[in-house]
Amino acid sequence: MARKWTRYPKKTFYAFIGPWAIGFVLLTAVPMLYGFLVSLTNFDGSSPRWKWVGLRNYLELFNDGDAWAALGRTMAFTAIVVPLSVAGSLGLALIINRRLRAVGLWRTVFFLPSVVPVVAMAIMWKLVFNKDAGILNAVLGVVGIGPIDWLVDPTVFYSLITVMLWGLGGGMVIMLAALQGVPVELEEAAVVDGAGRWTVLRHVTVPMISPILFFQVITMVIGSLQIFVQPLLLTNSSGIAGAGTVPESNRMYMVQVYQEFFLSNRFGYGSAMLWIFFIIILGLTMVLLRSSRSWVHYEVDTDAEREGATK
C-alpha cells in the first residue's frame, strides 16, 4: 500500500491555491456570467416579472448618445490624466532621487496624499474648491481673479483632474525604486560623452525604466477608465451621493452605468453597458501590450554585458 514518495504531491498545490481558485470562480467568473445573463433581460432589480429580451439592450446601447458621450468623456479624461500622472510621478521621483536636505520629509509629504481615503479626499477638496469660503478662490482673489465656481460645469472636470494628480505619490514611490535600479555608470558615461541632463534623461534613464513606466501606464489607464467614486463625491451637493447630482462634465462611463442601475432601475441595460465596457478595456489593454514591443526596453542579460565590458 506504500506509495512512492514525491516531493510535490499534486493535491498539495491544488489545496494551497484552492481558496483563490474557488474565489475566482464564485466571485469573479460567476458574477460576470450572471451579469451577462442579466444583460439579456429587462430586470429592474426587484420585480419578479422580468423577460428575456435577447440582444435588445446591446442594440439600444449602440444608439445611446448619453452612453457614448460618457465614454468619450472618460477617454478624454484618461488621455489627460495618464500622461500627466506618469510624467508627474516621474518628475517627483527625479526630484526626490537627488541629494537634497530632508529628503525623507519631502518623500513623506509627496507620498502622503495617495493613502488618504477617497471620501476624506473629496471632503478636503470640496472645502478647498468652495466658491465663497474656499482657500483657492481666496488666493486667486488676491491676484484679482474673481471667484470661480470650481464644482460646476465645465470647470469641475479640471477640478477632478487636479484631485487625481494630488495622489501622484503612489506612482512616485514606484518610479523612485525604478530610478534607483538604473546603473549610475551608465548615466555618468553619457555625461562624460557630453550629454546634457535632458539628453541623459531622454536617452538613458527613461529607456532603462521603460518596463516600469509601461506597467504604470497600464494600471493607470485601467484605473482612470473605471473612475467612479471621485466624480460621484466631488459635487456641490451634500448628503448621500447619487449619480443624478454629478455635473455633466464629470459624467464618466461608470457614473452613467450607476445611474442606469440605481436611478432608472435598469439592471439589464446597466449590465449590458458593463459588458461592453469590459470588452473596450480589454481591447485597449491588448493594444497597449502590443504597442509596448516598440518602446519598452527589456534588459536581456545584464551580467553578461557587464562581464563583456570589464574584459
Binding site: W20, L27, P31, M32, S271
Partner: peptide, 29 residues
C-alpha cells in the same frame, strides 16, 4: 502541479479586470 503556469497567467490577468465591473453584478447576485 499540472496547470500551474496557466493558473498563474489567470491570476495575473485578473489584476487587470476592473474591480467595479464585477462589483455591480456581485451586488445583484
Amino acid at each position: 502541479a499540472p496547470g500551474k503556469k496557466a493558473l498563474f497567467v489567470v491570476i495575473l490577468s485578473t489584476m487587470m479586470i476592473p474591480q467595479i465591473l464585477t462589483l455591480l453584478p456581485t451586488y445583484v447576485l
